[in-house]
């Protein structure tokens, strides 16, 4: 019994220590603003790596999810003779929930795992140590551009996801199933609020982008520099990011849309 309590205590200490290290790490990465001439090219390169290379999976996923929403929405709404409302259903679902959440999950799986593996390998091959010994802070040179790139790329990816999803939903419901196009767009326009829906969705994506990228770069930087350690860190990135996104989504939804 005492052993179990002691193990629980150790686990608690480890969690607190990890959170402390992650906070210290974040402060170090965000503290120094590099000169624009140095920092901007690094940021652009990471935006390409984290954002542009994630576009394919985001666009394809957005398209199919929008098409499925169109199909499901039409099937359900036509039972009540309300198939004209399918446009607003698709838009609200994507803008409020699926856009931010699914993009964040895809982002964690594609870009987050790549970030962790890359930084972990840099650690294992002593590239981070060699940078330190050259008088270059890896937190500013390696971590900060990746952190900012994730933070910037994630909201843009989520917007693209939602736009492509809505277009996919239109393809199915208007072009295939014959919903009146004017009703599709008109109902969407009248029911989707820019501030309450679109901006709240964007706020979610900013939070998710920050959390997912922070988890990814920290796991890479803090990993045990062995093949098993990097593998474990990559897995943790995907699992922790997914759980954090789903948990935070509930909290943010409750705050933004809850009618208490």
């Amino acid at each position: 019994m005492m052993d179990r309590i002691a193990a629980l205590g150790r686990l608690g200490f480890n969690v607190v220590a990890t959170v402390g290290r992650a906070g210290y790490f974040l402060g170090g990465a965000l503290a120094g603003v590099p000169k624009p001439a140095v920092g901007f090219p690094l940021l652009v390169r990471q935006l390409y790596s984290v954002g542009v290379l994630s576009l394919a999976i985001v666009v394809v996923s957005g398209l199919f999810i929008g098409m499925v929403l169109g199909l499901q929405g039409y099937t359900i709404l036509s039972d009540y003779g309300s198939e004209a409302a399918v446009g607003q259903m698709i838009a609200l679902t994507l803008v409020r929930e699926l856009g931010p959440v699914v993009t964040a999950l895809l982002f964690a799986g594609r870009a987050g795992s790549a970030l962790t593996a890359e930084i972990g390998l840099m650690k294992a091959t002593e590239q981070l140590s060699s940078m330190e010994m050259m008088g270059v802070d890896p937190l500013r040179r390696v971590i900060a551009p990746r952190l900012w790139a994730g933070f910037i790329a994630m909201p843009i990816l989520a917007v693209i996801f939602s736009v492509v999803g809505i277009w996919g939903g239109m393809l199915v419901s208007v072009d295939w199933l014959g919903v009146f196009e004017g009703a599709f767009w008109g109902n969407m326009q009248s029911s989707v609020s820019f501030v309450d829906d679109v901006l709240n969705g964007v706020v979610k994506t900013v939070v998710f982008g920050f959390v997912c990228t922070w988890i990814a770069v920290f796991q890479g930087y803090d990993c045990v520099p062995t093949s098993a350690g990097i593998s474990s860190a990559t897995t943790k990135t995907v699992v922790y990011s997914s759980l954090a996104v789903l948990g935070l989504d509930f909290v943010l939804t409750a705050v933004m849309f809850g009618d208490f």
Binding site: S130, E132, M133, M134, G135, V136, D137
Partner: peptide, 9 residues
């Protein structure tokens, strides 16, 4: 970091 500029490893 300034001191490390005098070091190579």
């Amino acid at each position: 970091y300034t001191l490390r500029e005098k070091m190579g490893m």
